[in-house]
């Protein structure tokens, strides 16, 4: 038995690339395989999109437990309803739509429980907590301000802002994911943007009046 020529750790895909289980297979091929009852395709599909769904959910709900539930519910629903998806190319936006819907449900539920005093947990993944190690203190402060602003925004406004400016989706994609018209998406974005701007103004006010 010969040892591997080079250290495998350098050559191997990291967990961050776990979704790329079979990069050559197209969505359409995976969906067809799934329709034929190939269990492998199910996991391949999951791994291809889990990062997208996870990051979207995490940014929206702001805590890992809820994000995990959103990912699970999203894929359970998607795998169940996949046969109804007629256009294979629409898989990604379709998944995003389900994810946003599930995140919305979780978010509203958590908010209601907190309002009733039935949930005293603290969100463990606000945006500033997700910053890379190399981020500056200024960036940290500003993300805190963004988080604060988005907490006071409506769920629709919060989600639209996150999809647009945190995850980088186009305006059309935001409207599609939120299941609303372009005009409504713009209105939500404006609402959230006003709050974010105000939060920055507050943060930047002089200490001594």
């Amino acid at each position: 038995m010969k040892p591997a020529a080079a250290s495998p750790h350098h050559a191997l895909a990291s967990a961050a690339h776990a979704e790329r289980i079979e990069p050559r297979a197209l969505d359409a091929e995976l969906i067809e395989r799934l329709a034929r009852g190939d269990q492998w395709a199910k996991e391949a599909l999951y791994r291809r999109y889990v990062k997208l769904v996870w990051t979207t959910a995490l940014h929206m709900v702001g805590n890992r437990t809820d994000a995990q539930d959103v990912v699970q519910d999203t894929f359970v629903e998607a795998l169940r309803d996949l046969p109804t998806l007629r256009k294979h190319a629409a898989l990604r936006p379709w998944l995003l739509r389900i994810c946003v819907h599930q995140a919305h449900r979780r978010f509203r539920r958590r908010k209601l429980l907190r309002r009733l005093g039935l949930d005293r947990t603290i969100d463990d993944a606000p945006l500033e907590a997700l910053l890379h190690g190399g981020a500056t203190a200024e960036q940290q402060l500003e993300l805190e301000a963004v988080d604060r602003a988005l907490q006071s925004a409506s769920a629709g406004a919060r989600f639209a802002w996150i999809l647009r400016y945190v995850d980088g989706h186009t305006l059309e994609e935001v409207a599609d994911a939120c299941g609303c018209s372009l005009a409504t998406a713009k209105r939500h974005l404006n609402q959230a943007q006003t709050l974010v701007r105000r939060a920055f103004d507050d943060t930047e006010a002089p200490d001594v009046l």
Binding site: T55, L58, L130, L131, H132, Y165
Partner: peptide, 13 residues
């Protein structure tokens, strides 16, 4: 550039 480029996803295997 979206803010996500500054964030970690924390999605371990």
């Amino acid at each position: 550039e979206p803010l996500a480029t500054l964030l970690r996803d924390g999605l371990e295997e």
